[in-house]
Simulated assay, not measured.
Amino acid sequence: METALPTRKEAFDLLKEFNTSDSLIRHGLAVEGVMGHFADKFGKDREKWQIIGLVHDLDYERYPDQHCKKTREILMARNWPEAYIRAIESHGWGLCSDVKPESLLEKTLYAVDELTGLITSTCLVRPSRSVLDLKAKSVTKKWKDKSFAAGVDRSVIQKGAEMLQMDRGELISETILGMQAVAEAIGLKGNL
């Protein structure tokens, strides 16, 4: 049977089927926005990158002990392309997966996943509560405070930046731009 490419609607419906948490759905939307931004920056397939970003944590709410692994089973049952499944598995490399990011898409997803969490946390402690007026230096300042957003694995972000051969500041700035494009959908438009 030939594998059909999933649509954005199918991906979003699947995300909502397996996740009821608003924060996990917003996180999927944030990573989707950032992946679309990077796809444009690198001249790659925007829709593919966004769909993978949207569902990268598909199994996290229901199967936290099998995160990155259960998604393979779910997506194979729905006949998703192997490249999409592998990319999703690779975002947890060294944490919940042995699949090392190799393609540009995989390295990007690996680099931005944790970073979107740090950026979101930074926005929520600012007076504006918005990503629209956020600058990379504010995120960098919070980066240094290890007790702030302590669940964010900064070493993953740093390794991801190195994989992409990007300066960490540039990675932060570009990720902010991707999140700004979806600010309303991810609840970070704030009071601007």
Score class of each variant (00 low, 15 high):
Trp143Gly: 06
Thr122Lys: 13
Thr116Trp: 00
Gly117Glu: 01
Thr116Leu: 03
Thr120Val: 09
Asp145Ser: 04
Lys137Ser: 12
Leu124Gln: 11
Val125His: 07
Ala136Val: 05
Lys144Thr: 07
Leu115Ala: 03
Leu115Glu: 00
Val139Glu: 02
Glu114Ser: 10
Lys141Asn: 11
Leu134Gln: 04
Thr120Tyr: 13
Leu124Tyr: 12
Lys137Asp: 15
Leu124Thr: 06
Arg129Ile: 07
Asp113Gln: 09
Thr140Gly: 09
Val131Ile: 07
Leu132Asn: 14
Lys144Cys: 05
Lys135Val: 14
Arg129Lys: 15
Asp145Gln: 10
Leu118Met: 10
Trp143Asn: 06
Pro127Trp: 03
Ala150Pro: 09
Lys142Gln: 14
Thr140Ser: 12
Glu114Tyr: 11
Val125Pro: 05
Val112Trp: 11
Ser130Cys: 14
Leu124Val: 06
Ala150Arg: 14
Pro127Lys: 11
Pro127Arg: 10
Ser121Trp: 13
Ser147Ile: 03
Leu134Thr: 01
Leu124Glu: 13
Lys144His: 10
Asp113Val: 10
Val112Glu: 04
Ala136Ser: 15
Ser130Leu: 12
Lys137Thr: 14
Thr122Glu: 05
Lys142Asp: 03
Ala111Gly: 01
Gly117Lys: 04
Ser138His: 10
Ser138Trp: 12
Ser128Lys: 09
Asp113Cys: 10
Cys123Ile: 07
Thr140Pro: 06
Val152Phe: 04
Val112Gln: 06
Thr122Tyr: 09
Thr122His: 09
Glu114Arg: 11
Ser147Met: 05
Val152Trp: 04
Leu118Pro: 06
Cys123Leu: 02
Asp133Gln: 07
Lys144Ile: 07
Gly151Thr: 05
Ser121Tyr: 08
Ser121Phe: 12
Asp145Trp: 00
Ile119His: 00
Thr140Arg: 15
Lys135Trp: 12
Gly151Gln: 05
Lys137Pro: 08
Phe148Glu: 01
Gly151Ile: 02
Ala149Pro: 00
Glu114Gln: 12
Arg126Ile: 03
Gly151Arg: 09
Ser138Val: 08
Leu132Phe: 07
Lys146Leu: 13
Cys123Asp: 00
Glu114Asn: 12
Thr140Asn: 11
Asp133Tyr: 03
Phe148Ile: 01
Lys142Phe: 08
Gly151Phe: 05
Leu118Gly: 08
Ser147Cys: 00
Thr116Ala: 01
Trp143Val: 01
Lys144Arg: 15
Lys137Leu: 11
Lys146Asn: 07
Lys146Asp: 09
Ala136Met: 04
Asp113Lys: 10
Val152Glu: 03
Lys141His: 10
Thr122Ile: 10
Lys146His: 13
Gly151His: 08
Glu114Ala: 13
Thr120Ser: 15
Pro127Asn: 08
Ala111Ser: 04
Ser130Asn: 11
Asp133Glu: 14
Leu132Arg: 14
Ala150Gly: 14
Val112Leu: 07
Ser138Lys: 09
Ala111Asp: 00
Leu134Lys: 02
Val112Met: 08
Lys142Leu: 11
Val152Pro: 01
Leu115Asn: 01
Leu124Lys: 10
Gly151Glu: 04
Val112Phe: 05
Ala150Met: 09
Lys135Ala: 11
Ala111Trp: 01
Ser128Phe: 13
Leu134Val: 00
Cys123Ser: 03
Gly117Ile: 02
Val125Phe: 04
Lys142Trp: 09
Asp133Leu: 08
Val152Arg: 10
Thr140Ile: 15
Ser128Leu: 14
Ala149Gln: 00
Arg129Tyr: 14
